[in-house]
Write a protein that binds this DNA or RNA. Sequence first.
DNA 1: TGAAATTTGTGCGTATGTATT
DNA 2: GAATACATACGCACAAATTTC
Lengths: 83, 83
Amino acid sequence: MEIDRASPVPPYRQIAAFLRAAILRGDFAPGSRLPGVEQTVQEWGVARTTARKALAAVRDEGWSFASVGLGYYVAPQEQWPQT
Amino acid sequence: MEIDRASPVPPYRQIAAFLRAAILRGDFAPGSRLPGVEQTVQEWGVARTTARKALAAVRDEGWSFASVGLGYYVAPQEQWPQT
DNA sequence: TGAAATTTGTGCGTATGTATT
DNA sequence: GAATACATACGCACAAATTTC
């Protein structure tokens, strides 16, 4: 959970990449809940905007889905990209 | 170029939908330049954030690409979604 | 019934970095 | 170096959906 501020990869993409990798590793099973905006802010030490952008990127790519009032959840594997 | 503020469809999606339709109609040929952030702000009367979100959505879906210092351009038709 | 708490969605403002011309 | 234009980050406020009490 450490941002590499020296990296050319922007923080929001570092976080998104971490989440994708964690999902692929199985750290978060399909249907299980993912860290939300607040938790991401706390764990990574970034602004809400940055946390939201990371979570939205993962969602928009099909790895997860979100529901207002509930949070972010890992998408069914059938909806994952590429595969 | 009028936002329907009464619509449940948020402004940034209204703008994105307009751009997609314009591209599909051929109003903007592949390779030609699209309105940028500033122009979108002026034409639609929205904030920069909203304009950027609309342009980013169209780009992320594959309809266009962007280059720093240059602007947004219609993507080659081969890169368009679905088709 | 409904009020509060939680959480995502959207919009607006601002500043800085970076690539291109 | 200057001008242009996209990319990213941070902050704030309110809307909408869901759950809980």
